[in-house]
Simulated scan of single mutants.
Amino acid sequence: MRMHETFIKPMHREGIKFVAIFAAVTLMLFLVSDLLGWIGVGLTVWCYYFFRDPERVTPARPGLVVSPADGIVSLIEPATPPAELGMPDVPLTRISVFMSVFNCHVNRAPVAGEVTAVAYRPGKFFNASLDKASADNERNGLCIRVADGRNLAVVQIAGLVARRIVCFVSPGEALQTGERFGLIRFGSRLDVYLPEGVVPLVSIGQTMVAGETVLAELNAPTSE
């Protein structure tokens, strides 16, 4: 890897217009004050950094569930998947990954499989690290059916600052583990609902890397 590739990451196309807006405002700020202009430069660089889209190396072993987002594991608890996904109304292990405004916000598929449902639901904008964010905040959920017929849900949740959830996939499409499927702008959270009996391999407070960090293993002995 070249030295500049360590610090300069490619930007996702969703960020182009935002960086352009930040840059235009920065030019106007320079007309007012050099100090304000340089503050604008810093914010423009941050905006570019926010929309970075680095390549990731996904583990190759079949049956692994990887993190869909960069961030910190904020919750691991039993919870019922969102009703709009049409999954059975039974509690499953939910792993929540909280993304700050400094994390990469490109979301990646936690498993390989067929997208059987995509459901958006408007809502509020509580701090995404709070437990009630899963139930009350704006969200977009995917149900993914893996090769053995089990279902896994991954839910994008808007946060206190986030105001736009973007999803690139539709029902019927096939996803590969670690494949990009969406992003959330400016701070948010991802929830993963593991199939019944699957045991998480991570702990609260652990740092996640989207598409790389293993959350669980579908083929491991279940907790039942």
Results as ranks from 00 to 15, higher is better:
P110M: 04
D131W: 13
A135S: 13
A24Y: 12
N151D: 13
F102L: 09
A147G: 06
L194N: 01
E84Y: 11
G205V: 11
L142Y: 03
R61P: 13
P122T: 11
D191N: 08
V115K: 03
I204R: 15
F51C: 07
V41H: 04
V214A: 02
V166T: 09
C143G: 11
L160V: 03
T93H: 02
V19K: 04
P59Q: 06
E138G: 00
A135V: 14
A153K: 03
V25T: 10
T6S: 14
C104T: 12
A109G: 00
G197V: 01
L27Y: 10
I76D: 13
A109E: 00
S100V: 01
F98Y: 11
N103I: 05
D148E: 03
N103H: 01
K17L: 13
A79S: 12
I72T: 09
A147T: 09
N151Q: 10
A117R: 11
N151E: 11
V90Q: 10
F102K: 11
P59W: 02
K17C: 13
P91W: 08
R61G: 13
A20H: 11
L64R: 02
A20W: 10
N137P: 09
W46R: 10
C143E: 13
L27N: 07
M3R: 15
V192C: 04
L194D: 00
C167T: 08
F126D: 10
G205M: 12
R145Q: 09
I8G: 12
S134F: 15
A24L: 12
Y120G: 09
R52C: 00
N137I: 05
D131Q: 15
T177R: 10
P88Q: 01
M3C: 15
V65E: 00
R185V: 05
E179G: 08
E217R: 07
D191L: 09
S170Y: 12
D131A: 15
G159P: 02
Q156H: 08
T58Q: 03
M11P: 12
A158S: 07
D131H: 14
G172S: 08
Y193C: 05
R185S: 01
L43Q: 06
I8R: 15
V154L: 09
Y49V: 15
G141T: 04
E217Q: 09
G63L: 01
T116P: 15
I21R: 05
A162T: 04
G113D: 05
I95C: 06
L85Y: 06
Q206V: 06
N219S: 10
V118I: 08
A119C: 10
A117D: 07
R52M: 04
L183E: 02
V146C: 01
I95S: 00
T44M: 04
K9I: 11
N103S: 02
F181D: 05
L130R: 13
G211E: 00
G178L: 02
S203Q: 14
L175W: 02
S223G: 13
V198A: 04
T44A: 02
K132D: 09
V209H: 14
D34I: 03
A133L: 04
R121C: 11
Y48Q: 10
G205P: 04
S74R: 12
F168I: 11
G71Y: 06
P81L: 14
S67P: 01
Y193R: 00
L183R: 06
V19F: 00
D191M: 06
L201H: 14
G63D: 03
S96V: 14
Y120R: 12
F126V: 07
S129R: 14
E14T: 05
